[in-house]
Simulated scan of single mutants.
Amino acid sequence: MNVLDLIRAAGPLLWVLLLLSVYVVYLVAVRAQVLSRLGRDAGALIERARAVTAESGPAAALAEIDRAAHPSPAVSVLRAGLSRADRGVDAATSAMQGALIVEEDRLYTGLSALGTAAQVAPLLGLLGTVIGMVRSFLVFSQTTAPTPEQLATGISEALINTAGGLIVAIVAYVARGALRARADRIATQAERVREELPGWLRRPEVSLSFDDMLPGGVRR
């Protein structure tokens, strides 16, 4: 029995599981690509921004970050804080908190859908199992002496749907865990920036004013 024979024996519910599996694979591929881009190491840029903030102020550090155009959420949070630094530390902290919420939404988008797929797939497989067993029992009601081939149709449908549901659920669950762990690591760096930037700005040698800056973050 080849793959096409198995699909035909499994009945129409397997097509639903196949469509769900395609969606899961597509979602995993897209989210892995997005997290790979957002997860680029921003440690060197953050350290450079810290040094520039101490030496020339937040405006110069902001210009440095804008030139780098780094996609990391940590850099986006840092940019939000530095852009409001001239209004005070509290304003910078509030801006970073808002930026962090936006970045976390970008990081965790799609993970709930994978969790739903991991929960629904076994239920679809179980439904296919029930339908297959019902078909097998109907053979007994219609035939006094059913042959093994007649019984095998319903049993095959039950087992194939069960296996299909479990495979899709396992893939979705494992992928969701891996993607969430990756997103958590990226979010941790952004949260660290949110905690550290107020300390940079409170140093007595740091001027929060943007008035004495030329375009590009250079002091007059």
Score class of each variant (00 low, 15 high):
199 G>T: 10
9 A>D: 14
11 G>Q: 14
119 Q>C: 09
100 L>V: 03
19 L>P: 07
17 L>E: 10
218 V>Y: 05
9 A>I: 02
209 S>G: 13
135 R>H: 10
177 G>K: 08
43 G>D: 01
54 A>Q: 11
2 N>G: 05
182 R>L: 01
84 R>S: 14
17 L>T: 08
90 D>R: 12
73 P>D: 15
146 P>F: 03
110 G>A: 14
14 L>Q: 11
106 R>G: 04
98 G>E: 12
132 G>R: 01
47 E>W: 08
158 A>W: 03
87 R>K: 12
207 S>C: 01
40 R>N: 15
122 P>D: 06
116 T>D: 06
38 L>Q: 08
40 R>S: 06
72 S>T: 02
148 P>G: 07
117 A>R: 05
105 D>K: 12
184 D>K: 10
43 G>H: 01
126 L>D: 03
97 Q>H: 13
37 R>V: 08
103 E>I: 04
26 Y>T: 06
107 L>Y: 03
135 R>W: 08
110 G>Y: 15
98 G>P: 14
202 R>V: 09
204 P>S: 05
50 R>P: 03
8 R>K: 11
1 M>R: 13
134 V>G: 00
135 R>M: 05
186 I>M: 01
93 T>F: 08
204 P>L: 10
126 L>I: 02
88 G>M: 03
114 L>C: 09
87 R>F: 07
104 E>R: 10
149 E>S: 15
164 G>T: 03
213 M>L: 13
3 V>R: 14
169 A>R: 01
